[in-house]
Deep mutational scan, measured.
Amino acid sequence: PTIVLKVSPEELKALEKAGVEIEKIEKNEDGELYITLTPEALKKAGFE
């Protein structure tokens, strides 16, 4: 199962800087950012 999270541009930068593997980055028509994370990326980021 993949996880989709709504993030701010600042959060996205912080995640990328931390080396979190982001599978997909999407922006909706309201300009909101959503990222898709794999279970492996979540484990690496410390989420179980």
Results as ranks from 00 to 15, higher is better:
16 E>C: 12
4 V>S: 05
31 G>K: 03
20 V>L: 09
19 G>A: 05
29 E>F: 10
22 I>C: 03
30 D>W: 14
35 I>H: 00
43 K>I: 10
2 T>I: 12
46 G>Q: 06
25 I>L: 08
22 I>Y: 09
4 V>L: 10
7 V>K: 01
15 L>Q: 00
25 I>A: 04
2 T>E: 04
24 K>W: 10
17 K>L: 11
45 A>H: 05
23 E>P: 03
9 P>L: 07
17 K>C: 08
41 A>W: 09
3 I>P: 01
6 K>F: 10
7 V>L: 07
25 I>M: 07
4 V>M: 10
13 K>Q: 10
43 K>S: 13
22 I>L: 07
7 V>R: 01
24 K>L: 09
20 V>F: 04
15 L>D: 00
4 V>A: 04
13 K>M: 13
41 A>P: 01
2 T>A: 12
39 P>T: 13
18 A>P: 00
40 E>M: 09
40 E>A: 10
6 K>Q: 05
33 L>C: 06
45 A>R: 03
44 K>I: 08
15 L>I: 13
31 G>V: 01
12 L>T: 00
22 I>Q: 00
43 K>W: 09
21 E>V: 05
1 P>F: 15
32 E>N: 11
35 I>W: 00
3 I>L: 05
11 E>A: 14
9 P>F: 06
26 E>R: 08
43 K>D: 08
14 A>C: 15
40 E>W: 03
12 L>F: 10
46 G>F: 04
37 L>H: 00
22 I>P: 04
1 P>H: 10
47 F>L: 15
38 T>E: 04
45 A>M: 08
31 G>W: 03
37 L>K: 00
40 E>C: 14
17 K>P: 00
28 N>C: 11
10 E>K: 11
32 E>C: 13
44 K>F: 05
24 K>T: 06
2 T>H: 14
17 K>G: 08
15 L>C: 03
40 E>F: 04
29 E>Y: 10
39 P>Y: 15
45 A>G: 10
31 G>F: 02
27 K>C: 14
37 L>P: 00
41 A>V: 02
30 D>G: 10
12 L>H: 02
11 E>M: 15
10 E>S: 13
42 L>A: 15
21 E>W: 13
36 T>A: 04
10 E>N: 10
39 P>C: 15
36 T>R: 07
22 I>E: 00
8 S>Y: 03
34 Y>A: 03
41 A>C: 03
39 P>K: 14
31 G>S: 04
6 K>P: 01
26 E>K: 04
16 E>M: 14
39 P>R: 15
46 G>R: 06
36 T>Y: 14
28 N>D: 09
8 S>W: 04
7 V>E: 00
17 K>E: 09
30 D>I: 13
25 I>H: 02
30 D>H: 12
26 E>A: 08
23 E>A: 09
22 I>R: 01
48 E>I: 12
28 N>L: 11
13 K>N: 10
2 T>N: 13
35 I>Y: 01
20 V>S: 02
34 Y>V: 07
19 G>Y: 04
31 G>M: 03
18 A>V: 05
8 S>G: 07
24 K>M: 08
39 P>I: 15
40 E>D: 07
18 A>Y: 12
14 A>K: 14
36 T>E: 06
6 K>T: 04
17 K>D: 10
13 K>C: 12
26 E>V: 09
16 E>Q: 13
40 E>P: 03
35 I>F: 01
25 I>G: 01
34 Y>T: 07
39 P>A: 14
16 E>R: 15
1 P>C: 15
31 G>C: 06
47 F>H: 09
28 N>M: 10
9 P>Q: 09
26 E>S: 10
15 L>N: 00
41 A>S: 07
2 T>V: 12
18 A>L: 15
9 P>S: 09
42 L>I: 08
36 T>L: 07
48 E>A: 06
22 I>S: 01
40 E>Q: 08
32 E>F: 14
37 L>W: 02
41 A>D: 05
23 E>R: 08
39 P>F: 15
20 V>I: 14
30 D>P: 03
34 Y>F: 11
16 E>T: 13
36 T>I: 07
10 E>L: 15
29 E>S: 12
7 V>T: 03
11 E>Y: 15
33 L>P: 01
32 E>A: 13
37 L>M: 10
6 K>R: 14
40 E>V: 04
18 A>I: 11
24 K>G: 06
42 L>R: 04
16 E>Y: 15
2 T>M: 15
47 F>T: 06
5 L>K: 05
20 V>N: 01
38 T>A: 04
16 E>N: 12
10 E>T: 12
13 K>A: 12
5 L>W: 14
10 E>M: 14
29 E>N: 10
25 I>W: 07
27 K>A: 08
14 A>M: 14
11 E>Q: 15
32 E>H: 14
32 E>W: 14
22 I>G: 01
11 E>G: 10
12 L>I: 08
7 V>Q: 01
5 L>E: 01
37 L>F: 06
37 L>V: 14
19 G>T: 02
47 F>G: 06
41 A>M: 12
30 D>E: 11
4 V>T: 12
38 T>W: 02
15 L>V: 03
7 V>A: 02
34 Y>R: 07
27 K>W: 12
39 P>L: 15
29 E>W: 11
3 I>S: 04
47 F>I: 14
40 E>K: 04
47 F>Q: 08
39 P>G: 09
24 K>C: 10
48 E>W: 05
3 I>K: 06
2 T>P: 13
10 E>A: 13
29 E>L: 10
2 T>S: 13
37 L>R: 00
42 L>T: 04
10 E>I: 12
1 P>D: 09
36 T>Q: 06
34 Y>L: 09
44 K>N: 10
17 K>R: 13
48 E>K: 02
14 A>W: 15
18 A>H: 08
16 E>A: 10
34 Y>E: 05
44 K>H: 06
1 P>K: 13
5 L>F: 13
34 Y>M: 07
33 L>I: 13
5 L>M: 13
4 V>K: 11
15 L>G: 00
27 K>H: 11
11 E>T: 15
29 E>H: 10
36 T>M: 08
39 P>S: 11
4 V>F: 11
10 E>G: 09
5 L>V: 05
25 I>N: 01
39 P>H: 15
20 V>P: 00
47 F>M: 13
2 T>W: 15
42 L>M: 13
46 G>N: 03
27 K>S: 12
15 L>E: 00
39 P>W: 15
30 D>V: 13
7 V>P: 00
8 S>F: 03
33 L>H: 04
6 K>I: 05
1 P>E: 11
14 A>D: 05
45 A>S: 08
16 E>K: 14
43 K>T: 08
34 Y>H: 05
3 I>F: 09
8 S>N: 07
26 E>F: 14
35 I>G: 00
19 G>K: 07
35 I>T: 01
3 I>Y: 12
1 P>I: 11
26 E>L: 08
17 K>Q: 10
46 G>E: 04
4 V>C: 09
